[in-house]
């Protein structure tokens, strides 16, 4: 079976990609929430937030990108849930194909759909005055971190996608993920927060990831923060992958 893994996964990914391209509205809705938040913060709250020499749109874009991914993966869970409900999942499982290919197809599709949404959000940010003098290497590093984070959150999304009892249940898990950037350095420097909130904000994954992306885009010294950010991404990825795989095994056996 292993010999067919790549081919089967490619065929199945082609299928799930059609689900995305035939409902481009999901890409739009994925991008609309972060774009609305971006408009709100840049044109309403942003004026009152002191971010030093960095312009506010440049300051908050990394956090917006994280929110984009968090809202994008809820569709991954949704698509997987629909497959589970519709019976097509069982059809695939009863066929002589690489079984894990079904899951990987959803994961790869999630990655592509999120990259498209991220590009849309960055384009809107450019219209709103976002500028970066970062070089190719810095951009590649930013892209790498975002891809890694998308994979990590996608594997989290697989779990409710496989186990949810209702559509609402399948996508509700992403709300806390969307909310997490608000209690971080994404929109407001943590220095202004009261002690316990600040302690939480500075030690949760979003802050280190956002700071690293921001430093890369504004050509600052990234320092050791990048390792903290990568450790969070890889850590979440590994844990989520292990739990998702266990859930999947339980489902298919």
């Amino acid at each position: 079976m292993a010999t067919h893994f790549l081919g089967d996964t490619a065929v199945l990914t082609g299928r799930t990609m059609r689900h995305v391209t035939r409902s481009m509205d999901t890409i739009i809705t994925t991008a609309i929430t972060p774009i609305a938040i971006m408009l709100l913060f840049v044109y309403v709250f942003g004026g009152a937030i002191d971010t030093g020499t960095v312009s506010y749109v440049n300051y908050m874009l990394p956090g917006i990108l994280l929110i984009t991914i968090a809202s994008g993966i809820s569709y991954t869970a949704f698509r997987l849930f629909n497959d589970m409900q519709g019976g097509i999942f069982e059809r695939f499982q009863s066929m002589p194909i690489a079984r894990s290919g079904v899951l990987w197809a959803h994961v790869l599709t999630s990655l592509v759909a999120n990259v498209i949404s991220l590009v849309v959000v960055v384009l809107v940010a450019l219209l709103m005055g976002f500028r970066s003098g970062a070089g190719v290497l810095a951009w590649l590093a930013v892209a790498g971190i975002l891809v890694l984070l998308t994979m990590a959150l996608t594997w989290i999304a697989v779990i409710p996608g496989l186990t949810a009892k209702s559509v609402e249940g399948a996508s509700a898990f992403s709300y806390p993920l969307i909310f997490l950037p608000f209690i971080s350095s994404a929109f407001v420097p943590t220095g202004s927060m009261p002690g316990p909130v600040r302690a939480f904000a500075e030690h949760q994954p979003v802050t280190s990831i956002v700071n690293t992306i921001r430093d890369l885009l504004t050509q600052q010294q990234v320092g050791t923060g990048i390792w903290t950010a990568l450790a969070w991404c890889v850590g979440i990825l590994v844990v989520a992958y292990v739990f998702a795989t266990i859930t999947y095994r339980r489902k298919v056996s």
Partner: peptide
């Protein structure tokens, strides 16, 4: 794996991809 090579399943709910 050999069983899956030998069979086809049509479940209770039409397992077609509606999209």
């Amino acid at each position: 794996a050999d069983v899956r090579e030998s069979i086809s399943l049509t479940g209770q709910f039409a397992a077609v991809d509606g999209i």
